[in-house]
Design a binder for these strands. Structure first.
Ligand SMILES: [Mn+2]
Ligand SMILES: [Mn+2]
Ligand SMILES: [Zn+2]
Ligand SMILES: [Zn+2]
Lengths: 144, 144
DNA sequence: ATTAAATTTGTAATGATTACAAATATGAAA
DNA sequence: TTTCATATTTGTAATCATTACAAATTTAAT
């Protein structure tokens, strides 16, 4: 397991973020749960171990990590932000039935575009995602 | 102008939607304002002409039109849904500064994929967008 | 030990969206 | 035209994610 506390601590320090206990817990959670969790999911789980954990701290920390480029915000459901520890530009699949978000392994188009502008607009981020019914939900449908 | 009231009425009837006055107004607005407006923008403008217009009706109608495939919901800002009269799969540019959403003219990758699945997931929609600073905001920056 | 700054916490406020029920409009049957 | 069922609209209240804010706590330097 690469994602032990020491590595997490290093990761924060390298980005100039003071490695408080709450921040370590939150970042560790993201390393261990690659399902693009919500604030709610993160908080509900961590508050079991750390009963003093505040939801505001989860929000604050995720915003900080996002600003520092440690994590990425994914806004494709329209109802809540999902968080991704994987900061390399990659694409996603959102299941309309169960709400799960999967990484998909397609070579990101435009990723190696030499010009970082389009129609005069300066491109800073490239996002792509599919919507549909996920593998798991398809299987469940057939077993009904 | 193709987007007169008669055409709008036809459009609704063809989709099996009763063309009420409110629905006509809302759909006409979307035809006339191709900037991917919010519910707020639509309501604020229409209530001037139709003072009895309710915001709930705007929500209801947009949901109906979306379900019937007349319009598309765009969820890329994370804070509110934007609406698009253009239902053909196309890509967008979101300006981080002014919040405007532009259509961008790139040939949608994956669009002509023969297989409508990826990693076992059934693909129903393909979305792509860029984030950055729009042409207009770049110009304003230079004139400060 | 003192003290200032950073962090965390709890609560209140905000803002978009939805739920819901009353009011109104529509349209067919009598 | 009246009657009556149904669809639509409207206003208000509720919900839910997120943010604002200030008090409490922790941290680190003096
Ligand atoms: Mn991902
Ligand atoms: Mn568009
Ligand atoms: Zn699923
Ligand atoms: Zn702009």
């Amino acid at each position: 397991m690469i994602t032990n506390m020491k590595h997490i601590k290093n990761e924060l320090e390298q980005k100039g973020i003071k490695p408080t206990y709450q921040r370590l817990c939150i970042l560790e959670y993201l390393h261990a749960h690659l399902v693009h969790p919500t604030v709610e999911m993160i908080y509900d789980k961590l508050v079991e171990r750390v009963p003093t954990m505040s939801k505001t701290t989860v929000y604050n920390t995720l915003k900080l990590l996002s600003e520092k480029g440690v994590i990425n915000e994914i806004t494709i459901t329209g109802t809540e932000v999902r968080y991704d520890i994987n900061c390399q530009s990659h694409h996603h699949f959102l299941c309309k039935k169960c709400g799960k978000i999967y990484d998909v392994d397609v070579t990101c188009p435009f990723a190696n575009m030499d010009h970082k502008e389009i129609s005069g607009h300066e491109i800073q981020e490239i996002h792509g995602y599919f919507k549909g019914i996920c593998k798991e939900c398809l299987t469940n449908q057939n077993n009904e």
